[in-house]
Design a protein around this nucleic acid. Structure first.
Lengths: 222, 222
DNA sequence: GCGCAACCTTAAGCCAATATTAAGCGGCCC
DNA sequence: GGGCCGCTTAATATTGGCTTAAGGTTGCGC
Protein backbone atom coordinates (compact mmCIF):
# COMPACT_ATOMS: atom_id res chain seq x y z
CA UNK A 1 0.00 0.00 0.00
CA UNK A 2 1.36 3.34 -1.05
CA UNK A 3 0.31 6.51 0.75
CA UNK A 4 1.02 10.15 0.05
CA UNK A 5 1.38 12.59 2.91
CA UNK A 6 1.05 16.29 2.13
CA UNK A 7 2.09 18.26 5.20
CA UNK A 8 4.37 21.24 5.67
CA UNK A 9 5.38 20.65 9.27
CA UNK A 10 8.58 18.63 8.99
CA UNK A 11 8.48 17.16 12.49
CA UNK A 12 4.89 15.98 12.12
CA UNK A 13 5.87 14.52 8.78
CA UNK A 14 8.64 12.52 10.38
CA UNK A 15 6.40 11.33 13.19
CA UNK A 16 3.80 10.06 10.78
CA UNK A 17 6.46 8.51 8.61
CA UNK A 18 7.91 6.35 11.37
CA UNK A 19 4.48 5.43 12.67
CA UNK A 20 3.21 4.27 9.30
CA UNK A 21 6.39 2.56 8.31
CA UNK A 22 5.87 0.13 11.14
CA UNK A 23 2.46 -0.70 9.70
CA UNK A 24 3.97 -1.86 6.47
CA UNK A 25 2.83 1.03 4.34
CA UNK A 26 5.05 2.83 1.89
CA UNK A 27 4.85 6.54 2.56
CA UNK A 28 5.89 9.36 0.26
CA UNK A 29 5.65 12.89 1.51
CA UNK A 30 5.53 16.39 0.10
CA UNK A 31 5.28 19.76 1.79
CA UNK A 32 3.84 21.83 -1.01
CA UNK A 33 0.46 21.95 -2.68
CA UNK A 34 1.67 22.41 -6.24
CA UNK A 35 4.04 19.47 -6.04
CA UNK A 36 1.21 17.46 -4.58
CA UNK A 37 -1.09 18.16 -7.50
CA UNK A 38 1.67 17.14 -9.85
CA UNK A 39 2.40 13.91 -8.00
CA UNK A 40 -1.27 13.01 -7.82
CA UNK A 41 -1.64 13.51 -11.55
CA UNK A 42 1.32 11.38 -12.45
CA UNK A 43 1.46 8.63 -9.90
CA UNK A 44 -0.96 6.28 -8.26
CA UNK A 45 -1.52 6.20 -4.51
CA UNK A 46 -3.87 4.13 -2.40
CA UNK A 47 -4.60 6.91 0.06
CA UNK A 48 -3.77 10.58 0.59
CA UNK A 49 -3.18 12.30 3.94
CA UNK A 50 -3.78 15.98 3.36
CA UNK A 51 -3.04 18.94 5.56
CA UNK A 52 -5.45 21.80 4.87
CA UNK A 53 -3.09 24.61 5.81
CA UNK A 54 -0.40 24.45 3.18
CA UNK A 55 1.90 27.06 1.70
CA UNK A 56 1.63 27.64 -2.03
CA UNK A 57 -1.56 25.96 -3.04
CA UNK A 58 -3.84 25.16 -0.11
CA UNK A 59 -5.09 21.70 0.74
CA UNK A 60 -8.67 22.21 -0.34
CA UNK A 61 -7.53 23.16 -3.83
CA UNK A 62 -5.37 20.07 -4.03
CA UNK A 63 -8.36 17.99 -3.07
CA UNK A 64 -10.65 19.70 -5.57
CA UNK A 65 -8.14 19.26 -8.37
CA UNK A 66 -7.79 15.58 -7.53
CA UNK A 67 -11.53 15.05 -7.73
CA UNK A 68 -11.82 17.18 -10.86
CA UNK A 69 -9.36 14.78 -12.45
CA UNK A 70 -11.82 12.01 -11.74
CA UNK A 71 -9.70 10.23 -9.14
CA UNK A 72 -11.49 8.43 -6.33
CA UNK A 73 -8.42 7.94 -4.16
CA UNK A 74 -9.45 8.10 -0.49
CA UNK A 75 -8.40 11.35 1.18
CA UNK A 76 -7.99 11.82 4.91
CA UNK A 77 -7.82 15.45 5.92
CA UNK A 78 -5.57 16.62 8.73
CA UNK A 79 -6.37 20.02 10.07
CA UNK A 80 -5.55 22.20 13.01
CA UNK A 81 -8.71 24.16 12.47
CA UNK A 82 -11.63 22.46 14.12
CA UNK A 83 -14.31 24.82 12.94
CA UNK A 84 -17.29 22.87 11.76
CA UNK A 85 -17.43 24.80 8.50
CA UNK A 86 -13.93 23.64 7.62
CA UNK A 87 -14.77 20.01 8.14
CA UNK A 88 -17.91 20.36 6.14
CA UNK A 89 -16.14 22.14 3.30
CA UNK A 90 -13.58 19.37 3.30
CA UNK A 91 -16.10 16.59 3.22
CA UNK A 92 -18.14 18.42 0.58
CA UNK A 93 -15.04 18.78 -1.54
CA UNK A 94 -14.62 15.05 -1.62
CA UNK A 95 -12.61 14.11 1.46
CA UNK A 96 -13.46 10.78 3.00
CA UNK A 97 -12.60 11.48 6.60
CA UNK A 98 -10.91 14.10 8.72
CA UNK A 99 -8.76 14.21 11.80
CA UNK A 100 -8.22 17.23 14.01
CA UNK A 101 -4.73 18.04 15.16
CA UNK A 102 -3.34 17.15 17.49
CA UNK A 103 -4.36 13.53 17.11
CA UNK A 104 -3.27 10.20 18.47
CA UNK A 105 -1.16 8.15 16.12
CA UNK A 106 -3.19 5.07 16.93
CA UNK A 107 -6.30 6.89 15.82
CA UNK A 108 -4.63 7.89 12.59
CA UNK A 109 -3.70 4.28 11.97
CA UNK A 110 -7.24 3.13 12.67
CA UNK A 111 -8.72 5.69 10.30
CA UNK A 112 -6.30 4.73 7.58
CA UNK A 113 -7.18 1.07 7.97
CA UNK A 114 -10.87 1.88 7.84
CA UNK A 115 -10.54 4.00 4.71
CA UNK A 116 -8.42 1.43 2.93
CA UNK A 117 -10.87 -1.28 3.85
CA UNK A 118 -13.76 0.80 2.62
CA UNK A 119 -12.06 1.70 -0.62
CA UNK A 120 -11.10 -1.90 -1.21
CA UNK A 121 -14.75 -2.39 -1.93
CA UNK A 122 -16.35 -3.36 1.32
CA UNK A 123 -16.24 -5.06 4.58
CA UNK A 124 -14.53 -8.38 4.36
CA UNK A 125 -10.89 -7.98 3.80
CA UNK A 126 -10.43 -11.36 2.24
CA UNK A 127 -9.22 -11.91 -1.26
CA UNK A 128 -10.17 -15.29 -2.62
CA UNK A 129 -8.43 -16.67 -5.68
CA UNK A 130 -9.59 -20.24 -5.41
CA UNK A 131 -6.43 -22.03 -4.53
CA UNK A 132 -5.13 -18.97 -2.68
CA UNK A 133 -6.74 -16.81 -0.03
CA UNK A 134 -5.36 -13.58 1.39
CA UNK A 135 -6.50 -11.89 4.57
CA UNK A 136 -5.45 -8.28 4.57
CA UNK A 137 -6.16 -7.58 8.23
CA UNK A 138 -3.97 -10.29 9.59
CA UNK A 139 -1.60 -10.24 6.65
CA UNK A 140 -2.00 -13.94 6.37
CA UNK A 141 -2.17 -16.20 3.34
CA UNK A 142 -3.74 -19.61 2.91
CA UNK A 143 -2.65 -21.87 0.12
CA UNK A 144 -4.87 -24.89 -0.34
CA UNK A 145 -6.34 -24.07 3.06
CA UNK A 146 -2.94 -24.33 4.73
CA UNK A 147 -1.47 -21.17 6.23
CA UNK A 148 1.70 -19.91 4.61
CA UNK A 149 3.82 -17.40 6.43
CA UNK A 150 4.91 -14.50 4.30
CA UNK A 151 7.01 -11.52 5.28
CA UNK A 152 5.63 -8.01 4.96
CA UNK A 153 7.25 -7.30 1.62
CA UNK A 154 6.25 -10.63 0.22
CA UNK A 155 2.70 -10.06 1.31
CA UNK A 156 2.58 -6.55 -0.12
CA UNK A 157 3.82 -7.83 -3.44
CA UNK A 158 1.44 -10.76 -3.61
CA UNK A 159 -1.42 -8.57 -2.51
CA UNK A 160 -0.84 -6.14 -5.35
CA UNK A 161 -0.60 -8.89 -7.93
CA UNK A 162 -3.63 -10.66 -6.55
CA UNK A 163 -5.69 -7.53 -6.93
CA UNK A 164 -6.07 -8.23 -10.59
CA UNK A 165 -5.00 -11.74 -11.50
CA UNK A 166 -3.73 -11.95 -15.02
CA UNK A 167 -2.96 -8.27 -15.23
CA UNK A 168 0.66 -7.38 -15.90
CA UNK A 169 2.28 -5.09 -13.36
CA UNK A 170 5.44 -3.39 -14.57
CA UNK A 171 8.63 -3.73 -12.60
CA UNK A 172 8.55 -0.01 -12.09
CA UNK A 173 5.10 -0.10 -10.59
CA UNK A 174 5.98 -2.88 -8.22
CA UNK A 175 9.22 -1.25 -7.15
CA UNK A 176 7.41 1.96 -6.35
CA UNK A 177 4.87 -0.02 -4.43
CA UNK A 178 7.55 -1.50 -2.23
CA UNK A 179 9.94 1.37 -1.95
CA UNK A 180 8.32 4.66 -2.91
CA UNK A 181 10.69 7.30 -4.21
CA UNK A 182 13.01 7.44 -1.28
CA UNK A 183 15.40 4.76 -2.13
CA UNK A 184 17.11 4.39 -5.39
CA UNK A 185 16.77 0.68 -5.58
CA UNK A 186 19.74 -0.21 -7.68
CA UNK A 187 19.39 -3.83 -6.81
CA UNK A 188 17.36 -6.85 -7.65
CA UNK A 189 15.38 -6.86 -4.44
CA UNK A 190 12.12 -7.18 -6.33
CA UNK A 191 13.33 -10.30 -8.09
CA UNK A 192 14.39 -11.80 -4.81
CA UNK A 193 10.96 -11.30 -3.33
CA UNK A 194 9.35 -12.82 -6.39
CA UNK A 195 11.66 -15.74 -5.98
CA UNK A 196 10.66 -16.22 -2.37
CA UNK A 197 7.00 -16.10 -3.22
CA UNK A 198 7.40 -18.75 -5.88
CA UNK A 199 9.28 -20.87 -3.42
CA UNK A 200 6.78 -20.56 -0.59
CA UNK A 201 3.79 -21.04 -2.87
CA UNK A 202 4.55 -22.59 -6.22
CA UNK A 203 6.76 -21.61 -9.16
CA UNK A 204 4.05 -21.21 -11.77
CA UNK A 205 2.02 -18.75 -9.72
CA UNK A 206 3.87 -15.69 -10.89
CA UNK A 207 4.49 -15.32 -14.58
CA UNK A 208 7.47 -13.31 -15.83
CA UNK A 209 6.94 -10.98 -18.74
CA UNK A 210 10.43 -10.45 -19.99
CA UNK A 211 11.37 -6.78 -20.16
CA UNK A 212 7.99 -5.75 -18.76
CA UNK A 213 7.05 -7.09 -15.38
CA UNK A 214 5.09 -9.77 -13.56
CA UNK A 215 1.58 -11.11 -13.43
CA UNK A 216 -0.32 -13.60 -11.35
CA UNK A 217 -1.33 -16.61 -13.39
CA UNK A 218 -4.87 -17.22 -12.27
CA UNK A 219 -5.17 -20.67 -13.82
CA UNK A 220 -1.81 -21.96 -12.69
CA UNK A 221 -1.69 -25.05 -10.49
CA UNK A 222 1.16 -26.30 -8.39
CA UNK B 1 -12.72 -5.92 26.79
CA UNK B 2 -12.99 -2.42 25.48
CA UNK B 3 -15.88 -0.21 26.51
CA UNK B 4 -16.95 3.22 25.36
CA UNK B 5 -18.54 5.62 27.81
CA UNK B 6 -20.47 8.57 26.42
CA UNK B 7 -21.28 10.93 29.26
CA UNK B 8 -20.94 14.68 29.66
CA UNK B 9 -20.66 14.85 33.43
CA UNK B 10 -16.93 14.76 34.07
CA UNK B 11 -17.11 13.62 37.66
CA UNK B 12 -19.43 10.74 36.87
CA UNK B 13 -17.09 9.83 34.03
CA UNK B 14 -14.17 9.66 36.39
CA UNK B 15 -16.11 7.59 38.93
CA UNK B 16 -17.09 5.04 36.34
CA UNK B 17 -13.60 5.00 34.96
CA UNK B 18 -11.94 4.04 38.21
CA UNK B 19 -14.65 1.54 39.04
CA UNK B 20 -14.37 -0.29 35.76
CA UNK B 21 -10.62 -0.14 35.60
CA UNK B 22 -10.48 -2.38 38.63
CA UNK B 23 -12.62 -4.90 36.77
CA UNK B 24 -10.04 -5.21 34.07
CA UNK B 25 -11.92 -3.39 31.35
CA UNK B 26 -10.38 -0.81 29.09
CA UNK B 27 -12.54 2.28 29.06
CA UNK B 28 -12.52 5.10 26.55
CA UNK B 29 -14.80 8.03 27.16
CA UNK B 30 -16.29 10.90 25.21
CA UNK B 31 -18.56 13.71 26.23
CA UNK B 32 -20.08 14.64 22.92
CA UNK B 33 -22.58 12.92 20.68
CA UNK B 34 -20.95 13.77 17.37
CA UNK B 35 -17.60 12.48 18.46
CA UNK B 36 -19.32 9.36 19.71
CA UNK B 37 -20.95 8.64 16.38
CA UNK B 38 -17.63 9.07 14.71
CA UNK B 39 -15.79 6.84 17.15
CA UNK B 40 -18.41 4.13 16.85
CA UNK B 41 -18.14 4.19 13.09
CA UNK B 42 -14.39 3.86 13.10
CA UNK B 43 -13.50 1.68 16.02
CA UNK B 44 -14.72 -1.50 17.59
CA UNK B 45 -16.00 -1.68 21.14
CA UNK B 46 -17.42 -4.56 23.10
CA UNK B 47 -20.02 -2.45 24.88
CA UNK B 48 -21.28 1.12 24.97
CA UNK B 49 -22.43 3.04 28.04
CA UNK B 50 -24.62 5.85 26.79
CA UNK B 51 -25.98 8.87 28.58
CA UNK B 52 -29.23 10.05 27.02
CA UNK B 53 -28.88 13.71 27.90
CA UNK B 54 -25.94 14.85 25.84
CA UNK B 55 -24.95 18.21 24.40
CA UNK B 56 -24.59 18.41 20.64
CA UNK B 57 -26.17 15.26 19.36
CA UNK B 58 -28.38 13.52 21.92
CA UNK B 59 -27.90 9.97 23.07
CA UNK B 60 -30.89 8.49 21.29
CA UNK B 61 -29.60 9.75 17.95
CA UNK B 62 -26.22 8.21 18.67
CA UNK B 63 -27.91 4.91 19.37
CA UNK B 64 -30.07 5.07 16.27
CA UNK B 65 -27.10 5.86 14.08
CA UNK B 66 -25.19 2.94 15.54
CA UNK B 67 -28.00 0.53 14.76
CA UNK B 68 -28.57 2.07 11.34
CA UNK B 69 -24.94 1.21 10.60
CA UNK B 70 -25.79 -2.39 11.31
CA UNK B 71 -23.74 -2.70 14.49
CA UNK B 72 -24.98 -5.05 17.18
CA UNK B 73 -22.70 -3.75 19.93
CA UNK B 74 -24.52 -3.99 23.28
CA UNK B 75 -25.65 -0.61 24.57
CA UNK B 76 -26.43 0.17 28.18
CA UNK B 77 -28.31 3.42 28.62
CA UNK B 78 -27.68 5.71 31.57
CA UNK B 79 -30.31 8.29 32.15
CA UNK B 80 -31.38 10.72 34.82
CA UNK B 81 -34.86 10.79 33.41
CA UNK B 82 -36.88 7.94 34.77
CA UNK B 83 -40.00 8.56 32.74
CA UNK B 84 -41.35 5.33 31.39
CA UNK B 85 -41.59 6.74 27.87
CA UNK B 86 -37.89 7.44 27.83
CA UNK B 87 -36.96 3.93 28.77
CA UNK B 88 -39.27 2.53 26.19
CA UNK B 89 -37.96 4.81 23.47
CA UNK B 90 -34.45 3.73 24.38
CA UNK B 91 -35.18 0.04 24.26
CA UNK B 92 -37.15 0.45 21.06
CA UNK B 93 -34.23 2.23 19.51
CA UNK B 94 -32.02 -0.73 20.11
CA UNK B 95 -30.63 -0.40 23.61
CA UNK B 96 -30.05 -3.62 25.51
CA UNK B 97 -30.53 -2.40 29.04
CA UNK B 98 -30.86 0.81 30.99
CA UNK B 99 -29.88 2.15 34.36
CA UNK B 100 -31.43 5.12 36.10
CA UNK B 101 -29.20 7.67 37.75
CA UNK B 102 -28.15 7.69 40.43
CA UNK B 103 -27.13 4.08 40.46
CA UNK B 104 -24.90 1.85 42.51
CA UNK B 105 -21.56 1.10 40.93
CA UNK B 106 -21.95 -2.55 41.81
CA UNK B 107 -25.18 -2.64 39.89
CA UNK B 108 -23.51 -1.07 36.88
CA UNK B 109 -20.82 -3.72 37.03
CA UNK B 110 -23.37 -6.50 37.25
CA UNK B 111 -25.33 -5.20 34.26
CA UNK B 112 -22.18 -4.89 32.22
CA UNK B 113 -21.16 -8.44 33.03
CA UNK B 114 -24.61 -9.68 32.10
CA UNK B 115 -24.64 -7.84 28.78
CA UNK B 116 -21.18 -9.00 27.85
CA UNK B 117 -22.04 -12.56 28.75
CA UNK B 118 -25.21 -12.38 26.71
CA UNK B 119 -23.48 -10.87 23.69
CA UNK B 120 -20.78 -13.52 23.83
CA UNK B 121 -23.61 -15.91 23.14
CA UNK B 122 -22.94 -18.39 25.85
CA UNK B 123 -24.53 -18.76 29.22
CA UNK B 124 -21.56 -19.87 31.20
CA UNK B 125 -18.56 -17.65 31.18
CA UNK B 126 -16.02 -20.36 30.64
CA UNK B 127 -13.77 -20.62 27.67
CA UNK B 128 -12.43 -24.08 27.08
CA UNK B 129 -9.48 -24.62 24.78
CA UNK B 130 -8.68 -28.16 25.73
CA UNK B 131 -5.43 -27.76 27.55
CA UNK B 132 -6.45 -24.31 28.76
CA UNK B 133 -9.59 -23.09 30.48
CA UNK B 134 -10.51 -19.50 31.23
CA UNK B 135 -13.19 -18.35 33.61
CA UNK B 136 -14.18 -14.81 32.80
CA UNK B 137 -16.13 -14.06 35.95
CA UNK B 138 -13.41 -14.99 38.34
CA UNK B 139 -10.61 -13.95 35.98
CA UNK B 140 -8.95 -17.27 36.57
CA UNK B 141 -7.11 -19.63 34.29
CA UNK B 142 -6.52 -23.36 34.48
CA UNK B 143 -3.71 -24.94 32.58
CA UNK B 144 -3.84 -28.72 32.53
CA UNK B 145 -6.39 -28.49 35.35
CA UNK B 146 -3.96 -26.58 37.52
CA UNK B 147 -4.78 -22.98 38.41
CA UNK B 148 -2.40 -20.35 37.05
CA UNK B 149 -2.46 -16.87 38.47
CA UNK B 150 -2.46 -14.15 35.87
CA UNK B 151 -2.54 -10.41 36.38
CA UNK B 152 -5.33 -8.32 34.93
CA UNK B 153 -3.46 -7.28 31.82
CA UNK B 154 -2.23 -10.77 31.21
CA UNK B 155 -5.73 -12.12 31.54
CA UNK B 156 -7.21 -9.48 29.25
CA UNK B 157 -4.61 -10.26 26.63
CA UNK B 158 -5.03 -14.01 26.82
CA UNK B 159 -8.79 -13.66 26.85
CA UNK B 160 -8.78 -11.69 23.64
CA UNK B 161 -6.48 -14.12 21.90
CA UNK B 162 -8.45 -17.11 23.20
CA UNK B 163 -11.61 -15.70 21.72
CA UNK B 164 -10.59 -17.00 18.35
CA UNK B 165 -7.66 -19.38 18.52
CA UNK B 166 -5.58 -19.26 15.39
CA UNK B 167 -6.82 -15.85 14.39
CA UNK B 168 -4.17 -13.18 14.08
CA UNK B 169 -4.66 -10.08 16.20
CA UNK B 170 -2.64 -7.07 15.13
CA UNK B 171 -0.37 -5.35 17.61
CA UNK B 172 -2.47 -2.26 17.21
CA UNK B 173 -5.65 -4.06 18.07
CA UNK B 174 -4.13 -5.58 21.18
CA UNK B 175 -2.62 -2.30 22.30
CA UNK B 176 -5.97 -0.57 21.97
CA UNK B 177 -7.53 -3.40 23.88
CA UNK B 178 -5.16 -2.91 26.77
CA UNK B 179 -4.76 0.84 26.71
CA UNK B 180 -7.52 2.52 24.72
CA UNK B 181 -6.63 5.95 23.43
CA UNK B 182 -5.56 7.48 26.69
CA UNK B 183 -2.03 6.42 27.02
CA UNK B 184 0.63 6.94 24.51
CA UNK B 185 2.22 3.59 24.91
CA UNK B 186 5.58 4.29 23.40
CA UNK B 187 6.99 1.24 25.04
CA UNK B 188 7.10 -2.47 24.63
CA UNK B 189 4.56 -3.18 27.35
CA UNK B 190 2.57 -5.45 25.07
CA UNK B 191 5.63 -7.55 24.37
CA UNK B 192 6.38 -7.83 28.03
CA UNK B 193 2.91 -9.13 28.77
CA UNK B 194 3.20 -11.63 25.97
CA UNK B 195 6.46 -12.73 27.44
CA UNK B 196 4.94 -13.23 30.86
CA UNK B 197 2.10 -15.27 29.43
CA UNK B 198 4.50 -17.52 27.60
CA UNK B 199 6.46 -17.97 30.77
CA UNK B 200 3.50 -18.74 33.01
CA UNK B 201 1.91 -21.06 30.48
CA UNK B 202 4.24 -22.32 27.78
CA UNK B 203 6.34 -20.66 25.11
CA UNK B 204 4.63 -22.14 22.05
CA UNK B 205 1.16 -20.98 23.07
CA UNK B 206 1.41 -17.56 21.49
CA UNK B 207 2.70 -17.31 17.98
CA UNK B 208 4.43 -14.14 16.78
CA UNK B 209 3.70 -12.84 13.31
CA UNK B 210 6.51 -10.47 12.70
CA UNK B 211 5.37 -7.06 11.61
CA UNK B 212 1.74 -8.01 12.16
CA UNK B 213 0.78 -9.25 15.59
CA UNK B 214 0.10 -12.35 17.65
CA UNK B 215 -2.12 -15.39 17.56
CA UNK B 216 -2.93 -18.25 19.85
CA UNK B 217 -1.65 -21.51 18.46
CA UNK B 218 -4.52 -23.86 19.06
CA UNK B 219 -2.57 -27.02 18.42
CA UNK B 220 0.48 -26.11 20.41
CA UNK B 221 1.52 -28.29 23.32
CA UNK B 222 3.92 -27.49 26.10
C1' DG C 1 25.13 -21.77 -31.78
C1' DC C 2 27.03 -17.38 -29.73
C1' DG C 3 26.77 -13.63 -26.94
C1' DC C 4 24.30 -10.39 -24.43
C1' DA C 5 20.79 -8.98 -21.52
C1' DA C 6 17.26 -10.13 -18.46
C1' DC C 7 16.20 -12.78 -14.90
C1' DC C 8 17.01 -16.42 -11.16
C1' DT C 9 19.31 -18.33 -7.19
C1' DT C 10 22.02 -18.33 -3.20
C1' DA C 11 24.19 -16.67 0.72
C1' DA C 12 26.10 -13.25 3.79
C1' DG C 13 25.88 -8.91 6.47
C1' DC C 14 23.20 -5.42 8.27
C1' DC C 15 19.51 -3.62 10.64
C1' DA C 16 14.90 -3.42 12.57
C1' DA C 17 11.54 -5.99 15.27
C1' DT C 18 10.84 -8.60 19.11
C1' DA C 19 12.44 -11.06 23.45
C1' DT C 20 14.45 -10.90 27.71
C1' DT C 21 15.77 -9.14 31.94
C1' DA C 22 15.86 -5.96 35.57
C1' DA C 23 14.86 -1.83 37.88
C1' DG C 24 11.75 1.78 39.43
C1' DC C 25 7.21 3.54 40.22
C1' DG C 26 2.58 3.71 42.07
C1' DG C 27 -1.52 1.89 43.98
C1' DC C 28 -3.57 -0.98 47.43
C1' DC C 29 -3.99 -3.64 51.60
C1' DC C 30 -2.84 -4.17 56.01
C1' DG D 1 2.81 4.63 56.39
C1' DG D 2 5.30 0.36 55.00
C1' DG D 3 5.52 -3.47 52.13
C1' DC D 4 3.91 -6.05 48.32
C1' DC D 5 2.38 -6.68 43.73
C1' DG D 6 1.72 -5.51 39.19
C1' DC D 7 2.72 -2.33 35.64
C1' DT D 8 5.72 0.23 32.83
C1' DT D 9 10.03 1.57 31.21
C1' DA D 10 14.58 1.01 29.76
C1' DA D 11 18.64 -1.36 28.49
C1' DT D 12 20.50 -5.26 26.26
C1' DA D 13 20.20 -9.65 23.62
C1' DT D 14 18.48 -12.22 19.96
C1' DT D 15 15.96 -13.29 15.99
C1' DG D 16 14.69 -12.94 11.48
C1' DG D 17 13.68 -10.04 7.31
C1' DC D 18 15.73 -7.08 3.87
C1' DT D 19 19.13 -5.91 0.87
C1' DT D 20 23.06 -6.61 -1.65
C1' DA D 21 26.20 -8.78 -4.56
C1' DA D 22 28.07 -12.51 -7.04
C1' DG D 23 27.49 -16.25 -10.02
C1' DG D 24 24.25 -19.20 -12.61
C1' DT D 25 20.61 -19.78 -16.04
C1' DT D 26 17.41 -18.74 -19.62
C1' DG D 27 15.67 -16.66 -23.64
C1' DC D 28 16.35 -13.94 -27.72
C1' DG D 29 18.49 -11.73 -31.77
C1' DC D 30 21.82 -12.49 -35.03
Amino acid sequence: MRLLLIEDDASLREGIRTALKSEGYTLDSLSDGLQAVHALQHEVFDLVLLDLGLPGLDGLSVLKTLRADGKATPVLILTARDAVTDRITGLDSGADDYLIKPFEITELKARIRALLRRSAGRANSQLDLGILRLDVNSQSVFFQEAPVSLTRREFALLHELAHQPGHVFTRDHLQQLLYGWDDDVESNALEVHVHHLRKKLFPGLIRTLRGVGYALDKDARP
